[in-house]
Amino acid sequence: MNLKKMKTNFPILESERTILRQFVASDLQNVFQGLSHPEVIKYYGVSFKSLEETKEQMTWFSNLEKNENGIWWAVCSKTSRKFLGAAGLNDVSKEDKKAEIGFWLLPEYWGNGFITEIVPLLFNYAFNCIGLNRIEAFVETENTNCKKVLEKLNFNLESSLKDCEIKNDKLINLDIYSKLNTQ
């Protein structure tokens, strides 16, 4: 499947309680709220200080012609349609049949099992629609909540990289997790 073609036919994914849809302009405030919140960005690689800065992220989320190596969805409540967060795939490599997974939720929705409900939708899409074999997750070693979620989703811890990146002027460690298409 050509990621460029999805712009006009964006895949909508649904779980029992959520709908994953394409980002729209009215999501700007919610994305800013999430990606400027100290608890959300504590272990996340992207953050913004203004709505203007966030517009660039919105362009990236919604312009698959420029972003042909990834796809992201707005995660919303199926019943209320409220914006809950975002989830998607980065660094999609059809050649190597792999991608990196990413996700975040607004803090008021943490601890409700939404991530363990939506990530299998991403697996299904990656494995069955794109034809990938491997999903990777790079997680800061101190991010215990994310690591617990990945373990619930049967990701395998493959390795730990010590002092491998600088964040906020400090060296950090990353744990590498993977999920293989074993169907």
Rank of each mutant, 00 (worst) to 15 (best):
D163N: 13
A99G: 05
R81C: 14
L20A: 00
K94I: 11
L150F: 07
I12P: 00
S26Y: 08
M1G: 05
T59M: 03
E39V: 11
I135E: 02
F127I: 14
L153E: 06
N30H: 14
Q183T: 13
S62V: 02
E108S: 14
T116D: 01
L3R: 05
I176G: 00
A86K: 03
D169G: 06
G113H: 01
G88N: 02
K98D: 07
T79C: 12
V31N: 01
A87W: 00
G88M: 04
L20S: 00
G88A: 04
G88C: 07
R17K: 09
I115R: 00
S80D: 14
A25P: 04
M58E: 13
N128M: 14
K152L: 09
N173F: 14
F127M: 12
E165R: 09
N145L: 15
E68C: 08
Y177R: 06
K66M: 10
S36V: 15
S26E: 14
M6G: 03
K82N: 15
G88T: 03
Y43D: 02
E142A: 15
E158I: 12
F127R: 06
K5V: 05
R81W: 12
L161V: 07
M58Y: 07
N90L: 09
T79Q: 13
C76F: 06
T141S: 15
N30K: 04
S178M: 08
L171E: 04
K82F: 10
E100I: 10
N168A: 10
M6P: 04
L20E: 00
K42A: 10
V75N: 02
L20P: 01
G113V: 01
L174A: 06
N67F: 12
